[in-house]
């Protein structure tokens, strides 16, 4: 074990943490809006958000690569006016991961909000509470299992990300070389023992996450029946 480089784990966890936090900030208002304020564009937006579920990650990675390269208009614009480079950098990975994991954040949140008893919202409104107060004091505190599922799935999915990262991040040690990339590199170098150790740790981690999410869901369903 002594020769196992832990830096890729640190990077993977850092990336997953940033992605999860970023997606909570983006996903909570978006899920609320999609569930409680349905508009005409809802179907269109949901289809767009769901794309990463069916697209090969390389497709998303390819488009980001094309957009962010210094020769492209967006990449050139960011580099010239803001000195921001997204390609082969950690911030770029965070943005790519957020796009790629968006459905894993949104779907549990939407499911949780959709199952939320409407009369609780109406009870708060009847007491004079604004939608904002109702969201923070009533909807969120009673949706904790959905929040936890969304957070854990997003985190785990980001840890398991490979294709997008390879396309827009490459394999720069300490910057973009996450665990999934390390496994690929070790296999390429015919270093199967190291690949095996990385792979096994990821396998155990992913299993534990899913075990927690599913047992939480079962417990929450029991709790809902008690109400």
């Amino acid at each position: 074990m002594s020769d196992l480089d832990l830096l890729p784990f640190y990077l993977s966890f850092k990336l997953a943490a940033y992605t999860t936090i970023g997606l909570f900030l983006l996903g909570l208002p978006l899920a609320y809006w999609l569930v409680f304020r349905p508009k005409r564009y809802k179907v269109l937006l949901e289809s767009l958000i769901g794309l990463p579920l069916v697209l090969p990650p390389t497709v998303l990675g390819f488009y980001l690569l094309s957009l962010w390269s210094p020769e492209a208009w967006l990449g050139g614009f960011l580099a010239e006016y803001f000195h921001v480079h997204l390609l082969f950098t950690f911030p770029g990975l965070v943005i790519a991961s957020m796009l790629y994991s968006l459905p894993f954040m949104l779907q549990p949140l939407q499911a949780g909000f959709r199952a939320f008893p409407e009369t609780l919202v109406e009870a708060a409104y009847a007491l004079g509470k604004s939608p904002w107060t109702t969201f923070w004091r009533v909807i969120l505190p009673n949706s904790l299992p959905a929040l936890l599922s969304a957070g854990m799935l997003t985190f785990a999915h980001t840890i398991g990300e490979f294709g997008v990262i390879l396309m827009v991040g490459g394999s720069i040690p300490g910057e973009t070389k996450v665990v999934a990339i390390s496994i690929y590199d070790e296999v390429e170098a015919l270093n199967y023992a190291a690949a095996n150790r990385y792979a096994f740790i990821l396998l155990v981690f992913s299993f534990l996450v899913l075990l927690t999410v599913y047992s939480l869901n079962y417990r929450h369903q029991k709790f809902l029946r008690l109400l």
């Binding site: 008893p117 009369t119 609780l120 109406e122 009870a123 708060a124 004091r137 009533v138 505190p141 009673n142 109400l227």
Partner: peptide
Amino acid sequence: FQAYSLFPN
């Protein structure tokens, strides 16, 4: 409401 609608939290 018929369904009580107390805030569980």
